[in-house]
């Protein structure tokens, strides 16, 4: 897929600088070309969905943005400026927060320690302020998941959904401008999924840009402004959700062709 087509697919008014531009990103693991020349962008207050088969390269692509992997080639621009993201720490400096598919929690630590991992609140003497961290954790959890009570237990003692809410809390607690959510609702029940959907809408209303990965096409049609479909590491296409039907997206995922652009 070429860049011109991606640009054409982007319906945004000319002149507005995208929050994030991923340009011609490629990365290979050994022989596997996990991401192959993919370009997508994200605007403030926009939710862009990433769809595709297992192994299509979705997680790998966003891990490049979150600093977990280093791309082989390509360019990342944040607010129009070329961004150097070589580590998760770099990504945090650009206010990029990520909820990883694997949740990336330290099982042996409690919710507060996980929430603040790498960004501990410290006292004047430089010691970790556990009481303050716990208080902050209580505050945010009361809003995200009011049933959450196991604050002093290692997160290994939590259910999948509770662990997910810790990961989500960590991503939204800090001053995120760009939020990456890799299958945030995979482990959640109906009620919790609805809560995450509400959360996404509200964060979007606050002007965050969100990359959302999910296999639930219907959910994606509801939450996203645009969806990008990947197959075998390549971008099949990016479309505004109002321009396509669920069937169009499914056929993009399955056939790897964009019915809107390439006549069948």
């Amino acid at each position: 897929m070429t860049m011109t087509e991606t640009a054409k697919a982007d319906p945004r008014a000319a002149g507005e600088t995208p929050l994030v531009e991923l340009k011609d990103i490629s990365i290979a693991f050994g022989g596997v070309q996990a991401v192959d020349g993919v370009s997508i962008d994200l605007h403030p207050g926009e939710v862009v969905g990433l769809l595709g088969h297992n192994g299509a390269g979705k997680s790998t692509l966003i891990k490049i943005l979150s600093g977990a992997y280093r791309m082989d080639s390509g360019e990342i621009r944040i607010n129009g400026q070329k961004a150097e993201i070589h580590s998760p720490r770099d990504a945090r400096r650009y206010n990029i927060e990520t909820i990883y598919q694997t949740l990336a929690l330290a099982d042996n630590l409690d919710a507060a320690s996980n929430l603040f991992l790498g960004r501990e609140i410290t006292t004047a003497l430089g010691f970790v302020d556990d009481a303050k961290q716990e208080a902050e954790t209580r505050k945010i959890m009361a809003r995200l998941n009011p049933n959450f009570r196991k604050l002093n237990e290692p997160v290994s003692a939590l259910s999948g959904g509770q662990r997910q809410s810790v990961a989500i809390a960590r991503a939204v607690y800090f001053n995120a401008k760009i939020l990456i959510m890799d299958e945030p609702t995979a482990a959640l029940g109906v009620h919790e999924t609805a809560m995450v959907a509400d959360l996404i809408k509200e964060l979007k209303a606050q002007g965050l840009g969100i990359f959302l990965i999910s296999h639930d096409t219907r959910e994606m049609m509801e939450l996203c402004d645009r969806v990008s479909v990947m197959k075998n590491g390549q971008l099949v296409g990016t479309e505004r959700v109002e321009d396509v039907t669920e069937d169009d997206i499914l056929s993009m995922i399955i056939l790897g062709k964009n019915p809107k652009r390439e006549p069948a």
């Binding site: 979150s66 977990a68 580590s87 998760p88 720490r89 945090r92 990520t98 990883y100 694997t102 949740l103 990336a104 929690l105 330290a106 099982d107 042996n108 630590l109 320690s113 996980n114 991992l117 790498g118 960004r119 501990e120 410290t122 430089g126 010691f127 970790v128 556990d130 290692p154």
Partner: peptide, 23 residues
């Protein structure tokens, strides 16, 4: 009580998570 200690235990619990948290 220190970040160092927190990172030691976090890394032991889940090295990948520690790395992704910028440690």
């Amino acid at each position: 009580k220190t970040r160092l200690g927190r990172y030691i235990f976090a890394t032991g619990g889940n090295p990948d998570a520690a790395e992704l948290s910028g440690i």
